[in-house]
């Protein structure tokens, strides 16, 4: 199938096609599932790989009353800002400040929490909890493998070495000179980082990261590879 067959697709789908991506339909989105030209995707994910997760569900909420509202919806919050917490259905809640949160859907696409929260939220005067449509504002990449920290050191000033930047930590910082959110979210034993950045700059960021990972023989990997890593870790 072609990504343009679906109502939703990644903001960098043209680049992914150039990279040789094969797309599949997930809900109403076209997702790069695999790269048939790359016979060693699984090994690549353990060494240095990048996956585009931009079409996957995510949502944000901000405002003083957000923590209370999220708790009322059954969401478990991290204790402090700049931490992430995995939910029982494998969604990941990012706490960006005391009152700003982003929920990333699970990579197996089984969870309906993002859609449920979207439907549950209504604007109520006096309640300071506001919806932030993060699926449209941010691209979402996953960098995985043992060389990821070394690669990120080339484009980011924050110390993201594995013994300094623990699993579940968040850094909101400059990545390749654009603002972004880095989240460490290991896939079992494999170090992995989510990267969220301005969607309009995704066409710039993807080639930047591909260039930075070139010396580590990095290459794109599909969502199917990440899903199999998760299944193996479970």
């Amino acid at each position: 199938m072609q990504p343009t067959d679906q109502p939703r697709r990644s903001m960098i789908y043209r680049l992914l096609l150039e990279n040789g991506a094969e797309f599949e339909t997930c809900q109403d989105s076209a997702v790069a599932m695999r790269y048939p030209g790359n016979a060693a995707e699984a090994e690549q994910s353990q060494s240095m790989g990048i996956a585009d997760l931009s079409p996957l569900p995510r949502i944000g909420f901000k405002g003083k009353d957000t923590p209370l509202w999220l708790k009322q919806q059954g969401v478990q919050l991290p204790e402090t800002p700049n931490r992430a917490r995995k939910q029982s259905d494998n969604c990941l809640l990012l706490r960006l400040s005391d009152d700003e949160h982003v929920l990333l859907g699970d990579l197996t696409l089984r969870s309906t929490l993002v859609a449920t929260l979207h439907q549950s939220w209504h604007f109520q005067p006096g309640q300071m909890c506001y919806l932030v449509p993060r699926a449209d504002t941010h691209s979402w990449f996953c960098l995985s493998g043992k060389h990821t920290s070394d690669m990120l050191a080339k484009v980011c000033g924050v110390d993201l070495r594995l013994h300094k930047f623990g699993n579940g930590e968040i850094a909101q910082t400059s990545i390749a000179r654009i603002n972004g959110i880095v989240v460490r979210n290991d896939l079992g034993q494999i170090p992995a980082f989510y990267l969220l950045a301005d969607s309009a700059s995704a066409d710039y960021l993807w080639p930047c990261l591909m260039d930075a990972m070139d010396e580590f023989s990095g290459s794109p990997i599909g969502l199917a590879t990440l899903q199999s890593l998760i299944a193996r870790a479970a």
């Binding site: 800002p81 700049n82 400040s97 000033g157 924050v158 850094a171 909101q172 910082t173 400059s174």
Partner: peptide, 17 residues
């Protein structure tokens, strides 16, 4: 590069401010 300690995010390069 100068470093500023952001109360929310910790030490960051001054170019981020």
């Amino acid at each position: 590069m100068k470093i500023i300690h952001c109360p929310l995010n910790g030490p960051r390069n001054i170019s981020e401010f």
